[in-house]
C-alpha cells in the first residue's frame, strides 16, 4: 500500500511538473446532468447569459472564475472569443437594460469543482489538469 501511495504521489508531482504550458481549459458539470457534451457555441450562450437551460431543458447555473485568473483568460479567449474589456461593456449593457447578470464567480479552481459538484445544474470551467472524478467534462477547448 505504501509503495502504491508513493508511486501515485510521484505521479501527481510529475503531472504537476509539466506546468501550465500545454493545459487547455475544460467545461465541467455536475455528474447528474443528462447532457453529455456541449458545443463551444452552447457554452458561450450559457456564459453570456443568453441561454438559461441546457439542451435537455434543465436549468443551468454558470460559474465563473475570478477576473485575471489564467483559466478565465483562456476561457474568454478560446470559448467566448472576447477579451475582458469587451465582456465588461457587454455585461454593463445587459445589467442596465435588465437583460441579465454576469455569472457568479469563485476564487479558485477547487471552489469551481466544489460548486459544480454540489449544485445541480451548475457548469464551470477549469484548467484540464485540475479535473477530478467528482465532475463531468462537457467540452474541451484546445
Amino acid at each position: 500500500m505504501k509503495k502504491t501511495t508513493i508511486a501515485m504521489l510521484a505521479f501527481a508531482c510529475a503531472v504537476g511538473m509539466t506546468g501550465l504550458a500545454n493545459a487547455g481549459v475544460v467545461v465541467i458539470a455536475n455528474p447528474a446532468v443528462s447532457t453529455s457534451a456541449l458545443t463551444a457555441e452552447q457554452v458561450s450562450q450559457i456564459f453570456m447569459g443568453r441561454a438559461r437551460s441546457l439542451p435537455d431543458g434543465a436549468a443551468v447555473t454558470p460559474i465563473d472564475q475570478a477576473e485575471g485568473s489564467p483559466a478565465r483568460t483562456q476561457f474568454n479567449e478560446r470559448v467566448l472569443g472576447k477579451n475582458e474589456q469587451q465582456l465588461r461593456s457587454y455585461w454593463s449593457r445587459m445589467i442596465f437594460t435588465g437583460k441579465g447578470q454576469p455569472p457568479r464567480s469563485v476564487a479558485s479552481p477547487e471552489e469551481v469543482i466544489r460548486a459544480v459538484a454540489n449544485t445541480p445544474g451548475a457548469i464551470g470551467y477549469i484548467d484540464a489538469k485540475n479535473v477530478s472524478p467528482s465532475v463531468k467534462v462537457l467540452y474541451r477547448a484546445d
Binding site: L9, P109, D127
Partner: peptide, 23 residues
C-alpha cells in the same frame, strides 16, 4: 487514506510547480 491521497494529488497537480511539490 484515499481522501488524503486525492486531496494531495489534486493539490500537487494544481499547484503545478516542481519546487513547491518538493517543499
Amino acid at each position: 487514506m484515499n481522501k488524503h491521497l486525492l486531496a494531495l494529488s489534486v493539490v500537487a497537480a494544481a499547484l503545478g510547480s516542481p519546487a513547491f511539490a518538493e517543499e
